[in-house]
C-alpha cells in the first residue's frame, strides 16, 4: 500500500463536507447558548446575592476544571434518560450537544462579560443612580451597551474554540466531521487513513484561521478586556 493516495484524499471530501454542515450548526447553537447563559451568569454574579454567588462560582470553576467530554457523557447517559424520555433520538443529540457546549463555554464567557462589565467606569453607575434610572434601564441602557462591544473579540475566540471541540460530540454519534470520517468514510474504504484525517484537519483550519484573523482585527479596533 502506498503511503499517500490522492484518490482516497479526494474521496474523503463529500464525507467531510457533510460533517462540516453539522459541525457548524452545533457551533452556532452552542455559541448562542454560551453567549446568553454567560451573560446571565455574569449579571447574577454582579448582583452578589449571598449563597447564590458562591454556588454559581463553585459551579463555574468546577465546569471549567473538568473535561467537556466527561460532561457530555454525564448529560447523555445520566440526565438524558431522565429528562428527555419520548423525544426522538436526533433531537436528543441536538439538545444534549448544544447544552453541553453551551454550558461549558458559558462558564468561560461569563468571565469575559464580568471583565467587560467591570471595565465600565464607576462614574457611569453613579450617574445612572443620580438620574434615578430604574435598575433594568441601568443595565440595558448604560452598562451593557458599553461592555458588550469590548467583549466581542473574546466571545469570537470562544466560538472558534468551540468549533474545534464539536468533534467530541462524535462520541455520542452526532454526525459531525470526525464521525463521518471515522464511521461512514471508514466503512466505505475499509478504514480511515491519513488522507481523510488531513482533509478533516484542513477543513477546520480553512474555517478557523480566517475567523481568527478577523477576531484579531476586531481586537485591535475595540481593544481587549
Amino acid at each position: 500500500m502506498d503511503k499517500w493516495n490522492w484518490d482516497r484524499f479526494l474521496d474523503a471530501w463529500p464525507y467531510v463536507l457533510d460533517g462540516l454542515w453539522v459541525t457548524i450548526q452545533f457551533t452556532v447553537l452552542g455559541s448562542i447558548v454560551a453567549y446568553v447563559l454567560g451573560l446571565i451568569f455574569a449579571i447574577i454574579r454582579q448582583l452578589r446575592i449571598p449563597v447564590v454567588d458562591q454556588v454559581l462560582w463553585g459551579f463555574i470553576e468546577f465546569v471549567r476544571s473538568t473535561p467537556l467530554l466527561v460532561q457530555v457523557f454525564f448529560l447523555y447517559w445520566v440526565i438524558r434518560p431522565e429528562v428527555l424520555q419520548g423525544v426522538d433520538s436526533d433531537t436528543q443529540k441536538i439538545l444534549v450537544g448544544t447544552f453541553a457546549l453551551g454550558v461549558h463555554y458559558a462558564c468561560y464567557t461569563s468571565e469575559v462579560y464580568r471583565a467587560g462589565i467591570e471595565a465600565v467606569p464607576k462614574g457611569q453607575w453613579e450617574a445612572a443612580t443620580a438620574l434615578s434610572l430604574p435598575r433594568s434601564r441601568v443595565w440595558t441602557g448604560v452598562v451593557l451597551p458599553q461592555a458588550i462591544p469590548r467583549v466581542l473579540p473574546a466571545l469570537g475566540n470562544y466560538t472558534i474554540a468551540m468549533f474545534k471541540e464539536v468533534p467530541l460530540l462524535s462520541a455520542i454519534s452526532v454526525f459531525d466531521i470526525v464521525y463521518q470520517v471515522k464511521t461512514e468514510y471508514a466503512a466505505s474504504q475499509g478504514g480511515a487513513g491519513p488522507e481523510a484525517w488531513a482533509a478533516a484537519g484542513l477543513t477546520f483550519l480553512a474555517l478557523s484561521y480566517p475567523c481568527a484573523i478577523l477576531v484579531r482585527r476586531l481586537e485591535r479596533r475595540v481593544g481587549t478586556v
Binding site: 474545534k164 471541540e165 470526525v178 484525517w197 484537519g201 477546520f204 478557523s208 481568527a212
Partner: peptide
C-alpha cells in the same frame, strides 16, 4: 491551533 485536537 487551527485544526481540531481530536482530528490531530
Amino acid at each position: 491551533r487551527g485544526s481540531s485536537e481530536v482530528v490531530q
